[in-house]
């Protein structure tokens, strides 16, 4: 972590770079927009529940885009829904992160050829930080995706947004 090892002998003071502190705070309480689309959303809910416990990473569902940090695109994005997702994304305050969960959100999945109504990848509409493969991904895979996102945030610079 690199935050607590620079502790003074006086236990009440910790020295850290502002950047590290900011990133640490951000990555430790990623509030995700309470939002699910298809069967992937069932796995996402399972990840939030007691067995896998998303909350131990500080992830809780927040039911307004204005106070959410991340959005997990958990399922098939239809063209009709894509316009709504774009609006939700635009309503989120910076910094904001996107996890694309499952084959449908990544690239259209099983609908890639004959899905006249499916957007072939959410990255055609909004910028994605982490892609989680699977159909649907197991909760472990989604947790791995979250850890990747945390790693990305940890290396962020205040001068330049990288994630």
């Amino acid at each position: 972590m690199g935050l607590l090892d620079k502790e003074f002998s006086d236990g009440n003071i910790v020295i850290a770079r502002a950047e590290d502190l900011m990133n640490w705070a951000r990555l430790s309480s990623i509030w995700q927009l309470g939002f699910g689309l298809a069967c992937c959303a069932i796995e996402m809910m399972a990840t939030s529940a007691s067995h896998y416990d998303f909350d131990r990473f500080g992830v809780i569902p927040r039911n307004t885009p204005r106070q959410a940090d991340a959005i997990i695109i958990s399922g098939t994005v239809t063209l009709k829904m894509a316009t709504r997702i774009k609006r939700l994304y635009e309503q989120m305050p910076d910094p904001k992160y996107i996890i694309s969960m499952g084959s449908c959100a990544n690239c259209g999945g099983p609908y890639w050829e004959h899905g006249y109504h499916v957007l072939k990848g959410i990255d055609r509409v909004i910028p994605v930080d982490v892609y989680v493969p699977g159909c649907p991904p197991r909760p472990e895979a989604l947790l791995e995706g979250l850890l990747k996102l945390q790693e990305k945030i940890r290396n962020e610079s205040m001068r330049k947004k990288t994630a």
Partner: peptide, 20 residues
Amino acid sequence: FPLRKDYKNPEFYQGMKVPY
């Protein structure tokens, strides 16, 4: 109308590319 046998999917919908 998408389920007609001679339906052709459009190239774009509201600026989003539709085919794979």
